[in-house]
Structure formats: C-alpha cells, structure tokens
C-alpha cells in the first residue's frame, strides 16, 4: 500500500493543548499538541519522565487529561485503537489464536465469524503455525508478535505502541523493527510509537516528536524523509546517520534545557 506524502494525509486524531497534572502536583504533560494523520509512523522520543507514556495513555483513553482536547476525526468507535505494551501482555491461559481473537470477542463476535481475520493477522506476523500454542511455549520475540497481531487484527485506525521492543535483545529487536515496517507497508496502518532509542525512532518513523522532562512537553518535531521500504541497508546509510545525529542533538538540547 503506497504511503501518501506527509502533507496529503487525512487526519485521524489530534491532541490539542493537553495538560496532565497528577495528584501530587507533578506536571507530567504541559501543553502537548500533536496531529496524527492516516499512514503516519510517529515516534515519541524522549528521556524517562518526559511524559511520553502518559501521552500514550491519554490517547488510549486510560487517563483523562487535566486540560486540553483529544479529537478523533469522525468520532471514535469501538475497534479504532490497537495497543501494544512493553510486555507482550498475553493471557497465559489462552492459546495464541484465542489471544488474537480477544478484541473481537469483547465485541461479541464468535470465533467462527472472525476466524479468517485472526489467521490472517497471525500469518502477517509469521505465526500461523503457532495458533494452538500457549504463550509460555513461545520466545519473547514471538510473544511480542502475537501482541502485535492482536493490536492490528481489527484493522484499527491507530495503533499505539509503548516501547514494545525495549525488553528484547538487540538481534530480535532489529528483526522485529524490520518486520514491523514490512507489516505497515502491507496493511498501511497508522502508528504512534513510544521509544527512548534514537536509532529505533529514526529507523521506523517518518515523524519524530522529541519530548523533554520536568515538565513533560514537546520540544521539536523532526521529519525523516527517507522513503519506505527501509531495510538493513538503510541502517548503515549516510542518510540514516545524519537523521540519527539530528534526533540525538535535539534530544540532548531538550535534556540540557530540562537540567
């Protein structure tokens, strides 16, 4: 599925002037605004404590902002969101297929009705042979793939990912980064991806939102104009290095400003 240029993409969701202050008086987010358009791969990049996970929880509707608006273009409907957490977060008592079925099941759909969607999602993450396996039988990377399959099985308008590969070893992480981009190219999903890795954010995204801590806020937005598909060759290209330096400089400037 070809990706439209950044400027031509229809809007999906918008955060406007989001502020979140916790009961203890800690300002987790201060005036965050961000537009998410269809087909975007946006990384929220920042040090710990910059509110990037809070921003994601607000987008997911798990936390209410103290001030500001979240606008879903055309209104939010069930199945608009898919989420991948830092841990695979699978139900250990359910098979791989049953785990992927969950978002449908909670909307009252029987397995028979959505069997094809479930199997297709598993095929896309390369786990179609493991549908009857239990999570404990899978490696960390495979569990994360199941989690990704579950997030995309309903074809959501937006997939939120909260440092999904942070706990994996580097080889598995690189592989999953490649596979995630391949997957995105196939199904054309829209992703907001939280990470603290400069390299990961540059490799994956077409937009990077750099955030700073105390109070959590957006300090810069970068565009990564390298075309998709990106593969291992991109990791060693001059353009990749230049983008990494740019993002890294922005991150350091943000951290110094906060210190």
């Amino acid at each position: 599925m070809p990706v439209a240029p950044l400027s031509d993409r229809p809007p999906v969701m918008e955060l406007a002037g989001i502020n979140k202050t916790f009961a203890g008086g800690i300002v987790a987010l201060d005036g965050m605004s961000m537009a998410v358009n269809a087909g975007d791969f946006i990384s929220l990049l920042g040090p710990s404590g910059c509110g990037k996970s809070t921003a994601l929880r607000i987008m997911a509707g798990l936390t209410q902002p103290t001030a500001g608006r979240i606008d879903w273009h055309g209104g939010q409907r069930a199945g608009d969101l898919g989420v991948v957490f830092q841990e695979p977060t699978l139900m250990p008592w359910a098979t791989v297929a049953d785990n992927v079925w969950l978002p449908f099941r909670l909307r009252g759909k029987s397995y028979g009705e959505v069997r094809d969607d479930v199997l297709e999602a598993l095929r896309l993450v390369g786990l179609e042979k493991f549908q009857t396996a239990y999570p404990r039988e899978l490696s960390g990377g495979m569990k994360m793939r199941v989690s990704i399959a579950r997030a995309m099985v309903t074809h959501p308008r937006l997939i939120l990912m909260d440092e999904p590969f942070a706990a994996l070893d580097e080889i598995t992480r690189f592989k999953l980064n490649n596979d995630l981009l391949a997957l995105k190219a196939k199904i054309g999903c829209t992703v907001v991806f939280v990470t603290h890795s400069v390299f990961e954010s540059v490799f994956l995204s077409d937009r990077i939102v750099v955030m700073a801590a105390r109070p959590g806020r957006v300090v810069r937005e970068l565009e990564v104009d390298a075309p998709y598909p990106r593969d291992d060759a991109f990791r060693t290209s001059a353009g990749y290095a230049a983008h990494c330096r740019e993002a890294s400089d922005a991150l350091h400037a943000a951290m110094e400003a906060a210190a």
Binding site: L62, A78, L81, V83, F85, T89, M91, L102, L106, R107
Partner: peptide, 21 residues
C-alpha cells in the same frame, strides 16, 4: 496483570466480560 486490565478497558469490556474472561 495490570496491562491486561488496561487492555480490557481500551477494548471497552463490560464488567462481566472482565470478570469472566
């Protein structure tokens, strides 16, 4: 698991779905 609890909330699970599943 608190992440699973969040996931059920995001998917709009009812009280009984949360209890049962």
């Amino acid at each position: 698991d608190h992440n699973l609890r969040d996931l059920f909330r995001i998917y709009g699970a009812s009280r009984w779905q949360k209890l049962w599943f």
